[in-house]
Amino acid sequence: MYKYILESAGDINWMALFALITFFSVFGISAIMVFRKDKETLSHIANLPLADGDIVETNIEKR
């Protein structure tokens, strides 16, 4: 069935179209969702690498 549908499609240009649409969907949806996030949560997550309680200054930073 799938094979028949693909063959009947003639050339396979619809794939490029499909790819483009899905890309912009993924890109667009993630962009919209990201900009709807509240700042406090974002700040909390962004600071997670710095909040693991083992900040040690070595001779490299002290110079």
């Binding site: 899905t22 890309f23 993924v26 890109f27 993630s30 962009a31 969702m33 990201v34 900009f35 996030k37 974002l42 700040s43 997550i45 962004a46 600071n47 690498p49 710095l50 900040i55 930073e61």
Partner: peptide
């Protein structure tokens, strides 16, 4: 660098767009 990533929002878009493309 002892400072958070410049834009956490951008990192999210970076992730989804990159793995998709």
């Amino acid at each position: 660098a002892n400072r958070p990533v410049y834009s956490y929002r951008l990192s999210i878009i970076h992730f989804w767009a990159l793995i998709f493309i």
